[in-house]
């Protein structure tokens, strides 16, 4: 009986803990030559939208921008400054940035890094034990404009029910909510890696 109870306890513990070792949904790759220290002033470029959801790119960009401001770890340049910069250089969302752009970004906007994003999946799915839940996959890249190099690249993929706690509680049912949660997770990860050091 004692062994029987011990067996079930271990089984229960394994089942509980196995959820903690699931697939890593946020993956950040730092460049070998990256120097994240001193990255404080940032700007966010409009996200490139590879999905069929119209306006998802601007929505995600605005929410990420808000999350970056809200984190308090960065000095974020206003969206309008970035828009005028893009207008001057005729940069479409997702356009490749060259050395000239980095130099100008540093001179005109006085920033350390710039964020470029790309939405690869936006939608809703059902059949995961809940009503329809939103799903988002996005890739963000941070360029160090001081050195004109890629600093890091982050890929993040989440479903709304990833945040479920008990029954339906905790499930994120809106795209806005999911974008916001994912943005917070990405920014927290960046801060952990040394970005946002505004000393």
């Amino acid at each position: 009986m004692k062994y029987f109870l011990r067996f079930f306890f271990l089984l229960f513990l394994t089942a509980m803990l196995s959820g903690c070792f699931g697939a890593q949904q946020l993956q950040t790759r730092m460049m070998a030559t990256a120097r994240p220290d001193g990255v404080c002033r940032m700007a966010v470029l409009p996200f490139d939208n590879w999905t069929n959801e119209e306006q998802a790119g601007v929505v995600a960009q605005r929410i990420f921008y808000g999350a970056l401001v809200n984190s308090g770890a960065f000095e974020v340049r206003p969206e309008g400054d970035v828009s005028l910069f893009r207008l001057r250089h005729r940069l479409a969302p997702g356009a490749l940035l060259g050395k000239f752009h980095f130099t100008d970004l540093q001179e005109k906007l006085q920033i350390d890094a710039i964020v470029q994003g790309r939405l690869t999946e936006v939608g809703s799915i059902s059949g995961r034990g809940a009503d329809e839940v939103p799903v988002v996959a996005m890739q963000l890249q941070v360029y160090d404009v001081r050195r004109g190099e890629l600093l890091l690249s982050t890929f993040h993929h989440r479903w709304g029910d990833d945040y479920r706690k008990v029954m339906h509680f905790g499930t994120v049912t809106t795209l806005t909510g999911l974008f916001d949660r994912m943005s917070d997770e990405i920014i927290a990860d960046w801060i952990e890696r040394g970005l946002g050091n505004c000393q």
Partner: peptide
């Protein structure tokens, strides 16, 4: 879904932001 950003009129920089969303299901 709503998102707000407040910009400081002295520096011209964003100083506060908040995003929130809800649904009938929630």
């Amino acid at each position: 879904g709503l998102t707000f950003t407040a910009l400081d009129a002295v520096s011209g920089s964003p100083v506060w932001s908040e995003t929130g969303a809800t649904s009938i299901v929630e």
